[in-house]
Design a protein around this nucleic acid. Structure first.
Lengths: 345, 345
DNA sequence: AACGAGAATGTTAACGTTCACACTCTTCCT
DNA sequence: AGGAAGAGTGTGAACGTTAACATTCTCGTT
């Protein structure tokens, strides 16, 4: 009775080595594309690998190497258009660079942060990318920082921290939107922002203010929303009341910090018989799918999230190599559509 | 700046064992929550673990165990609202079950399929979840099937294949939307579908047809889109031409297979001075963020993508345990809003 | 008191790599 | 001819865990 080993083990380096008539170490060298292997030998090994369908065992490699070949990505649980797209960019770039991508989402429960970190730690990730541009989450990954590099997407550079960052230039986005409206002749431009503890939100506010000031215009009213269309609607209700009351604060244009809130604003306005852009101009932010077919088509500021994700990996790789990284933020782009026009008067 | 080379090895089981005055095997037993450890010993070990900040090394474990504790998730590259949400659900459930989640997206290039599979294979994933409900991708994971269970999200059950599936009941969704419109009194109901090679798309078509037939109504016209608002707009243009031409085929209601296309349809209609729902009723599908603030608020069929993701993991775990799984598809839900009403005549 | 059945713990050998060497050829210089 | 330099290859020991088995305790039973 021979060994009834129906547990057919996957071939290992030794099997390949035997078949190619070399030592396991030579196989290792071939697999890792190291120099100092004669072409003929390399070919023989490669052939054996192909014949046997050999695949290196990454666990064994990770064990001895102490490198997992994995990078961890933390996302906040929201999965809005932006984060999802950035995640996609991150994944693509990471895989292209030969890394595995391990995903972990953050619930609202702060205890989850600890468990997520433990999760990554246990997996021995080589780097972490945080897609959660809320200030409250700015330091989620700090405990890992002593061990691995961390890149945070969308956060402003923090020179005091070892966390590297990259982002779309949100302030510039805010300026572009505002300047465009000013160029159209608007003088009263209000802003519906996201929650101010989001970096993106407060930077867009800053851009809006700066541009208003630069043009010598008075500050507009700031209405704080929460990124949802519903909160945009609430802001829109406030705005239409201002307009109907012929308030001196009544705006001729509104800059919303994302497209969803812009949608809500437009809805509130339309409900009250106010037409966009005839009565009020609206500019959004993000250029989400469908923004071009809102009624009216939404003039907005587009950000390239996938590019953002790619850069994230780029920076992480630089950090892994110990290089400094000076990456300029990505410039967002204004997309002209129908929701903004010159004021009537 | 440059991180000093930290030669201090992380503590291993032996270190813990020494500190607790037991053998490494006992530590292993404690870590893996195995029985037959005296409470006092367990406590001592736990204490030592805490003192040393010990974390089990998953690579070593994976090596000896031949189980990676990782499940692979393949997504198509699109990152629409649905897939993203499902991904989130999958991640949550997987982590809760103690698994790592490895992500890989599929580009358009079919060669990528192979590389993605190799990627997972190399990582020794224990199971694969495919979030790519296109028929063309139905068999992407088949080569892995001999090794690990595969669960495909959104695909119809295929009894001939070992691939397990789960989904929202798309046909029911199509029926619900259509029935609602019929209940409102509509007799000419057209459908703007997604690409027919998507399961979801063809099932919704089937539901629409079935319900029409059940009500003894004539077939409506099928306009095939590609999920984008732009394609919905194109369909809307066709529809408004029908209406303006007083064609006998002119519909009083349109069922769009997703909200984005519904948005496009509404836009095209509005452009031509046709009002929704006064002139034409529109029902969408998905209930994407913002759908409630379209003008008018979109009546649509909501699917619970996160639940879908959770079930996916549930089924995968069952497969891993060798259990059969008979999971009923999730019933989608009609959300009544303003975009559909009774026809005027 | 001796026995034995479990419970509790320990010992040793894998798992499949890479690393640090040691070794054997070439090649080319003196 | 002698040998140094370096290319090409091989050897054995880690890496940190679990599996399988071996051993020691702890009782209740006879």
């Amino acid at each position: 009775m021979g060994r009834t080993k129906d547990e057919r083990r996957a071939p290992g380096m030794h099997d390949v080595a035997r078949r190619a008539g070399v030592s396991h170490q030579t196989v290792s060298r071939v697999v890792n594309e190291m120099p100092n292997v004669r072409p003929a030998t390399r070919a023989r090994v490669l052939q054996a690998i192909a014949d046997l369908g050999y695949r290196p065992n990454s666990a064994a490699r990770a064990l001895v190497t102490r490198r997992s070949g994995t990078i961890g990505v933390v996302t906040s649980g929201s999965m809005l258009w932006g984060p999802s797209s950035a995640l996609l960019g991150v994944e693509r770039a990471a895989r292209e660079a030969g890394y595995f991508v391990s995903l972990a989402s953050l619930g609202s429960d702060p205890a989850q942060v600890g468990s997520t970190l433990a999760h990554f730690h246990e997996q021995a990730v080589e780097g972490v990318i945080v897609i959660a541009p809320e200030a409250s989450l700015q330091h989620v990954a700090d405990p890992l920082l002593t061990e691995v590099p961390v890149v945070m997407i969308g956060a402003p550079p923090a020179p005091d921290s070892a966390v590297r960052t990259t982002s779309v230039d949100q302030e510039m986005g805010g300026r572009r939107a505002t300047r465009y409206l000013i160029g159209l002749g608007h003088k009263q431009i209000h802003h519906v922002s996201g929650p101010l503890e989001w970096f993106d939100a407060s930077l867009r506010v800053a851009g809006w203010r700066a541009e208003l000031a630069a043009a010598g215009l008075p500050d507009g009213t700031l209405l704080v929303g929460d990124w949802t269309a519903r909160s945009g609607y609430a802001a829109g209700v406030r705005i239409r009341e201002l307009i109907h009351g012929r308030s001196p604060q009544a705006p001729t244009a509104v800059f919303a910090a994302n497209d969803l809130m812009a949608l809500g604003v437009i809805h509130a306005l339309a409900e009250a018989g106010l037409s966009v852009p005839r009565d009020v101009s609206v500019v959004g932010f993000d250029d989400i799918p469908g923004a071009d077919y809102f009624t009216p088509g939404l003039t907005t500021v587009r950000q390239d999230f996938e590019e953002l994700g790619r850069r994230c990996i780029e920076i992480l790789l630089e950090a892994l190599r110990g290089e400094p990284s000076i990456v300029a933020p990505i410039a967002p782009q204004l997309i002209e559509r129908a929701s903004a026009a010159s004021p009537r008067d």
